[in-house]
Amino acid sequence: MNRAGPLASLVLLPLLAVSARAADVTIYRCTDASGHLTLRDTPCRAGEKQEARNMVRPTDPPPRPPAPAAAPAAPATAREPAPRYIVMTPPQPLYECIAPDGERYTSDTGEGRARWEPLWGFGYPAVPLHRRGGGVSADIGFHDGDVRGRVRIGDDGRPHHRPAVLVPAVPSGQWVYDECHRLPQAEVCDRLRDERYELNRRWNIAQPSERAQIDRETRGIDARLTNDCGDS
């Protein structure tokens, strides 16, 4: 029994040393005859130059603690939409005009067709002309309150002298425009739609040279209907 005690101690010491170094790793650097270097975890082969190094075996780090629960996100505040600016063009007016013969037509400016009317159409008297000798003369009567008289305009008929007379410049007529009145907006839209329908009818029977002009007129009416009447 006494002999077994020291032997058991000698066997246990290497085991304790192995267990103490269980976490170590021995790396062998082996160099062969041609100088080629090899790293191994076992001893080198015969004939190779060996160099051993003890290294600590890497271990995994301790597990990372769980991340704290994220706080609930604050509710997003609703943002007011950016203001939108809409530019609206006021509806373009349309006027109906009446000609002296009863004809009705439309105008965009409110100014009817112009026509020349002679003065006697407004009640001005026509002055008769008299031919006397080689010239022409006329007698015009006038009155201003209690003053009455006559004025004779003409030449003296003498052929060798230039007539020395004063002839007033009296207009023989004036321009008159047909009367027009503005139409309600609903009536304007109806008439524009009728005009577009008529242009479409004309386009179907028009010559190719005429269709370009009809297309331009139709585009203008379509733009006006979209802006003034809400047609799409």
Rank of each mutant, 00 (worst) to 15 (best):
R158T: 11
C44H: 06
R182E: 15
E187I: 01
V18A: 15
I27N: 11
E179L: 00
K49P: 00
A23G: 13
I205F: 06
G145C: 08
P168K: 09
P68C: 02
T77E: 15
R84M: 10
E80N: 09
R201C: 00
I221L: 08
L15S: 07
D178E: 14
A20E: 14
S172K: 15
Y197K: 13
T218N: 08
L94T: 03
A76N: 03
P83F: 02
A206N: 09
A67V: 05
A138W: 07
A22F: 11
D60S: 11
Y124T: 06
Q213R: 13
G47R: 09
D60N: 10
D190V: 01
T77G: 11
T218F: 01
E96W: 00
W120N: 14
M55W: 10
L166D: 15
M55G: 06
L37W: 07
G149K: 07
I27H: 11
G173F: 05
G173L: 06
N2D: 13
G157R: 07
G135N: 14
V87N: 08
L37N: 09
C189A: 03
P168F: 02
D146N: 12
T77K: 14
D155P: 05
D155E: 12
T38I: 01
P100H: 05
C97P: 03
T106D: 07
L119T: 10
A46Q: 15
S232V: 12
R216C: 00
G110M: 02
P125G: 10
D101I: 01
V11L: 15
Y85E: 15
V188A: 11
T26M: 09
R21V: 02
W203S: 08
R79N: 10
L94Q: 08
G112T: 07
I214Q: 04
P168N: 07
R45W: 04
A73Y: 01
L183A: 04
D156N: 15
C189D: 04
S232A: 12
S107H: 03
R131H: 14
G47E: 09
D194F: 00
S107M: 04
T218I: 03
R132C: 04
A52H: 06
G35H: 03
R57T: 07
A186T: 12
R40F: 00
A186M: 06
A52V: 02
P90T: 05
G230R: 03
D178H: 04
E195W: 05
R113W: 05
V87L: 11
S209H: 11
C30S: 06
Y85I: 13
P83K: 12
D156R: 13
S232C: 02
L10H: 07
E117Q: 15
D190G: 11
I140P: 05
Q92A: 14
Q185E: 15
A212W: 02
V165W: 06
E48K: 03
L225V: 06
Y177N: 11
S209P: 00
A8K: 09
W120K: 12
L183Q: 10
P75G: 04
E48I: 01
D108L: 05
T42D: 13
R148T: 10
F122E: 13
E117M: 12
D231Y: 07
D228L: 00
Y85Q: 15
G230C: 01
R201T: 11
A4W: 15
P128D: 13
I153L: 13
Y95F: 13
A22M: 08
P128V: 03
F142K: 07
M88C: 02
P125T: 08
A223W: 00
V165G: 04
A82P: 12
P72C: 04
P14S: 07
L94H: 03
S9H: 09
A99P: 00
D60L: 13
